[in-house]
Nucleic acid binder design. Structure first.
Length: 274
DNA sequence: CGCCAGGGTCTCG
DNA sequence: CGAGACCATGGC
């Protein structure tokens, strides 16, 4: 049971945006410049194409889910989310890709973030040999693009921010890899100096791109859930207040709990709308 | 058509 | 510190 995974939940929960499910039930994507095809077998990861060890790390198979679940709060909302998402893993994304996609995510639905991600790959990525895929564009290639070219990928006002951050990274002024040595607070502070990166995007980059499982992104969905189920008081709390008071209560794997609540809430609404 | 979407930034009190 | 305006674009 230790390495169980729910691929559907893991790849469709809004933490990563380019994976595609195929008719045979497997999932296809690229990590860096490598093609990967995976499927589920007996609740475990089966690598159809790609390096098993590399993908085992990408899918964080060494995260001990039972231990993580043991730290979740035991209220009905959390238990329902756990029941729905069991096997969802927080994957370890390439840092730049993760940061860049979440810069483009502000005030966008998950489906459109995916669309922008594919448009950027198509326009600025490199071909992945023998496939239809393209890599996620490097900071250098986005830094060299014009704002209009980025807007043509559907970015809207986010184009300027993505370009500006890409320029800081490409110039070497910012070293995202060196930032791995920073503690959580210093890393969050450093990320927030980048154009288009505020508290929420920084927490997403920390959680999905730096393996900081205590990071607790508060978006509109999480804020709604928190206010409804975890906040006793008349005044409407700000996202920052919610994060500060609840991230600690949710423990060292708060980010895991957050993603389970997020995915469960979104899927519940989709079912209700259908 | 109006509303909302995995928000950030700037301004003003 | 908190509240509001503004920013583009697409789905429903």
């Amino acid at each position: 049971m230790k390495k169980m995974i729910d691929l559907q939940a893991t790849l469709a929960c809004g933490q990563v945006f380019h994976w595609t499910d195929r008719v045979d039930g497997s999932w296809e994507g690229v990590v860096d410049d490598r093609l990967a095809v995976v499927r589920e077998g007996g609740g475990r990861l089966v690598v159809v194409e790609g390096d098993a060890e590399f993908l085992g790390d990408y899918f964080a198979l060494d995260d001990d889910l039972d231990e993580i679940y043991g730290g979740f709060p035991g209220d009905p909302t959390m238990l329902a989310a756990l029941d729905f998402c069991r096997g969802l893993r927080i994957i370890r994304q390439p840092t730049w890709e993760c940061l860049a996609t979440f810069i483009t995510s502000s005030m966008k639905q998950v489906a459109h973030i995916r669309q922008m991600s594919f448009a950027l790959r198509a326009r600025f990525g490199l071909a992945v040999r023998g496939t239809e895929w393209r890599t996620y564009p490097t900071a250098g290639s986005l830094a060299a693009a014009s704002e209009d070219e980025l807007r043509a990928c559907g970015l809207g006002y986010r184009a300027k921010n993505l370009r500006a951050t890409a320029q800081r990274v490409a110039s070497g002024e910012v070293d995202l890899e060196a930032w791995r040595d920073l503690d959580d607070t210093a890393l969050r502070e450093a990320l927030c100096t980048l154009p288009g990166v505020g508290r929420k995007v920084a927490n997403c980059a920390m959680l999905f791109g730096y393996g900081r499982l205590g990071a607790f992104p508060v978006d509109t969905w999480i804020a709604r859930i928190m206010r409804k189920n975890y906040w006793r008081g008349r005044a409407k709390p700000t996202p920052l207040a919610l994060e500060r008071r609840l991230a600690k209560r949710f423990g060292p794997h708060a980010g895991y709990a957050q993603q389970y609540l997020f995915h469960h809430a979104r899927m519940a609404q989709r079912r209700a709308a259908a």
